[in-house]
């Protein structure tokens, strides 16, 4: 190393701020889009697992087990390169990344949703039925609002994991924070500074989301006797 240079030199990091923040924005976009897909798919799969039809139940079970077992890194390569080569499904990298991340998270969320729904006391459903509410009204006004509260903390954790996982999408060329950081670190030959700064941005995102979830949880649990006050620190 050239001795005239300062040991820590973040000037190249500051000058690349625009690119880095853009990459950061894209990472957040990917995580958010993936979580939205995962919520929708997860809810469907969770309801399928609670179905009384055996075939539907089994399918949903295999779905959750499969996507909880596959590493993201393997699946995203498989989706992006594998599918393109073997069956000609050619997706843009961002789309492949978001879809993969969404699928994997949906496996976890399906389990979260299922346990949230089954945690609602049977008596709550009976009370709703006894009032003359229809099945759908019971689900909408009694079961889901209560399940929602139970689900918030694990859902928040899942979102945090998704944000961290976006770094892996760099592997298929999604120009998110990690990809940009890698290229800039090579270009400026300052890996320590660049990776440290990237780590700082991820930390910031994770802390912000965790804080938001904790506040939301507190707000919701203020009314509910059934929600344990148990925030992940």
């Amino acid at each position: 190393m050239v001795s005239a240079e300062p040991f820590f030199d973040f000037t190249s990091v500051w000058s690349s701020m625009g690119i880095l923040l853009k990459g950061f924005g894209l990472a957040m976009f990917c995580a958010t889009a993936a979580i939205i897909i995962a919520i929708i798919l997860g809810l469907i799969v969770a309801l399928m697992r609670l179905s009384s039809v055996k075939a539907i139940k089994t399918f949903a079970f295999i779905y959750t087990q499969l996507f909880r077992g596959i590493p993201l890194y393997v699946l995203v390569i498989w989706v992006y390169f594998g599918l393109a080569i073997a069956v000609g499904i050619n997706m843009p990298a961002i789309m492949a990344g978001v879809v993969t991340l969404g699928l994997l998270n949906s496996g976890y969320l399906a389990e979260t949703f299922r346990s949230g729904i089954t945690a609602i006391d049977r008596g709550q459903v009976e009370a709703g039925m006894a009032l003359g509410l229809s099945k759908r009204e019971v689900t909408r006004t009694i079961v889901l609002p209560q399940a929602f509260r139970i689900i918030i903390p694990p859902l928040g954790n899942q979102y945090v994991d998704a944000i961290k996982d976006t770094a892996i999408l760099s592997i298929v060329g999604v120009p998110e924070l990690m990809r940009e950081t890698q290229q800039l670190a090579d270009l400026h030959y300052r890996p320590f500074e660049f990776y440290t700064f990237a780590g700082f941005l991820y930390l910031l995102a994770v802390l912000t989301v965790s804080r938001g979830i904790a506040i939301l949880e507190k707000k919701l649990s203020a009314h509910s006797a059934q929600t344990p006050v148990n925030t992940a620190s």
């Binding site: 006894a130 209560q146 509260r149």
Partner: peptide
């Protein structure tokens, strides 16, 4: 759906109250 009309004419009170906590 028809059953809901029967139920709305019959009130029920439970052992565990089953008030809606939310």
């Amino acid at each position: 759906k028809k059953l809901t009309t029967l139920r709305s004419d019959i009130g029920m009170v439970f052992q565990n109250f089953n008030v809606f906590p939310h």
